[in-house]
Simulated scan of single mutants.
Amino acid sequence: MSILEVNHLSVSFKQYTAGLKQSHHKVISDLNVNLEAGEILAVVGASGSGKSLLAHAILGILPANASVSGVMTYEGEELTPARQKALRGKEIALVPQSVNYLDPLMKVGKQVRTSVQTGDAVQAQRRVFERFRLGREVERMYPFQLSGGMARRTLLSTAMVSGAKVIIADEPTPGLDPVVIKEALSHFREFANQGCAVMLITHDIESALQIADKIAVFYAGTTVEIAKAEDFAGQGEAIRHPYSKALWRALPQNDFVPITGSQPHPSALPPGCLFAPRCAMATPECLQAQPEMRPLRDGMVRCIHAT
């Protein structure tokens, strides 16, 4: 059962160029993704593909110059700005990419306690700190006194104690040692096993595959494939989209084959399929219109040639 649905999401930013001319850059276009209760969906793709913007759009924290279209629903009801505000940090929690989200003027123990919805906030904070190997002295520290890894574990702690039904984790593991990464991922898996939903935004496909149920591949601001995690194996024979295959083959353990070209800038998107200029399978038909997402082999793909 879908707990969070994003359909045909587009996000544009209004900017002013030389001479105060107004322009609009579409950074997300026709993006579709669903989160199901009890599931971990890993969102992967290169920098600039729209992964973090998707998280901010869901939570309603995009900057004022952003224009949003499409439909987002939570538990079957539309996510209006008022509803986003009511749910944010309560039923939908963010583990942000930047540690700057911590309040520099508040001790971190108190910050974590403010996210506890029920029960003893102090005990909840101390239990989660213990799980993340943060000593009792850490709760009395300010953010500037924390290492990068400690700050990330504090952000993880805030989400974990919130009692949220959905956790959106935006690159939650950089700067953490392998033991803590494994433990953090296991907590996300535990969270999903309790019937909640996790969106794990990451560059690290290998770590995501340890816990994810499905993988959503983003390219140039849109979804190009949604597949079961087990499809990402071997030489990528089960993967559907040419970009997803190329991304998989580019990993060191999978031949380390580079992808030719680069992802287009939002101000210079090509006509038709956004990956066509880099795709060996591209035909003139690919340049006519951006393909629709379509079902294929128990997944979804945005490619007319995928089989």
Rank of each mutant, 00 (worst) to 15 (best):
E5V: 11
S12P: 12
Y16V: 06
H24V: 04
H24R: 12
D30V: 12
D30E: 14
L31F: 02
N32F: 05
N32V: 01
V33C: 15
N34T: 15
A37L: 05
L41E: 01
V44F: 00
A46I: 14
A46S: 13
L59T: 01
G60S: 03
I61S: 07
S67Y: 14
S67W: 04
M72R: 03
T73H: 08
E75K: 10
E77F: 07
E77V: 06
A82R: 09
Q84D: 10
G89F: 09
E91M: 08
I92M: 11
V108W: 00
K110D: 13
Q117G: 10
V122Y: 11
Q125M: 15
R127D: 10
L134Q: 10
R136S: 11
E139L: 01
R140T: 05
Y142I: 01
F144T: 04
F144Y: 14
Q145R: 02
R152Y: 03
A164Q: 05
K165H: 10
E171S: 08
D177A: 10
P178D: 02
H187I: 08
F191D: 07
A192M: 09
G195E: 09
A197F: 03
I201K: 10
D204N: 13
I205Q: 01
L209H: 02
D213S: 06
I215Q: 02
I215C: 04
A220F: 11
D231R: 00
D231W: 00
G236R: 00
E237Y: 07
A238L: 07
H241T: 06
P242Y: 01
A246C: 03
L251T: 03
L251V: 07
V257D: 08
P266N: 03
S267D: 02
A276F: 02
C279Q: 00
M293L: 05
M293I: 15
L296G: 01
M300L: 07
V301K: 04
